[in-house]
């Protein structure tokens, strides 16, 4: 990470407890503009909870998170979430066509304007044909649905994409296709990517920075090469063996 530019998002000692259980324990991490940070960890390590703290879908118990040098609490939640957009693990399609899914925001935001050509362009960006605009979104494959979910987020013009195991339901070939798409989108749209995964091979290929999270603690951060020789830890050894 470069020292000169201030980080886009900065987490300082972020903890999250629920019912006396510590889910996140003093996480300190910085995310640079246009970086791709991968967080590796086994299921239940707190990765998804951490992502949800970043766009305030949940409130952390302790510590601070800043975005553009301002505490995230100082932004109205809806504005913050448009800028720091979460893409869920399982893409959720509302009943209706692809078009209705892409333009769902206009249900609550009268200022949300879109044109056919913008929708078509966005679909092309995520690797889909404009032909599917009027198809039933729920009839599409999970890979296509994940792309639509991505396109739906992009139409909000986000600055940061939070990816919660975005390819865990897809076969490895499709997973790489989607991440390739995200990589080129990130480049074209100046996006900052924060992705959690339990698949170290994907993180090694795409991430510019990685962190390893176990039991709510960030035990190691650095360039993707740290995944080649992680510090001794039973859980990491387990992760490395896990099939992708």
């Amino acid at each position: 990470m470069t020292e000169q530019t201030p980080p886009l998002i900065k987490c300082q000692d972020v903890s999250y407890n629920i019912n006396g259980n510590s889910i996140l324990d003093s996480i300190s991490l910085e995310f640079q503009f246009k970086s791709w940070t991968g967080i590796l960890g086994p299921s239940g390590s707190g990765k998804s909870t951490f992502l949800r703290c970043l766009n305030r879908l949940i409130s952390f118990s302790d510590g601070s998170i800043t975005y553009h040098n301002k505490p995230i609490e100082s932004y109205p939640p809806s504005k913050l979430r448009k800028k720091i957009c979460l893409i869920q693990q399982k893409p959720l399609m509302i009943p209706g066509s692809v078009r209705e899914n892409l333009t769902v925001v206009k249900d609550w935001d009268p200022e949300f304007k879109t044109t056919n050509s913008l929708l078509e362009k966005t679909l092309n960006q995520v690797g889909l044909q404009a032909l599917i605009l009027d198809q039933d979104a729920r009839s599409l494959s999970s890979g296509e649905q994940q792309r639509i979910s991505l396109a739906r987020g992009l139409l909000n013009n986000p600055e940061v994409l939070l990816l919660d195991e975005p390819t865990s339901n897809l076969d490895p070939r499709l997973a790489r296709q989607i991440l390739d798409t995200i990589q080129s989108l990130a480049f074209e749209n100046n996006l900052t990517i924060i992705m959690v995964s339990h698949d170290h091979s994907l993180l090694k290929k795409y991430a510019t920075d990685v962190g390893i999270m176990i039991n709510g603690k960030l035990i190691e951060t650095g360039p993707p090469t740290i995944l080649d020789h992680p510090r001794e830890h039973d859980s990491i050894q387990f992760l490395m063996k896990e099939p992708s």
Binding site: N55, L57, P77, S78, K79, R81, K82, C85, L86, Q88, K90, L92, I94, V104, V105, D107, W108, D109, S149, R152, G153, N156
Partner: peptide, 13 residues
């Protein structure tokens, strides 16, 4: 729950 999380993530009130 998942649908609501999706909508909140898109900035819905």
């Amino acid at each position: 729950e998942a649908e609501m999380e999706m909508m909140l993530s898109l900035g819905a009130p």
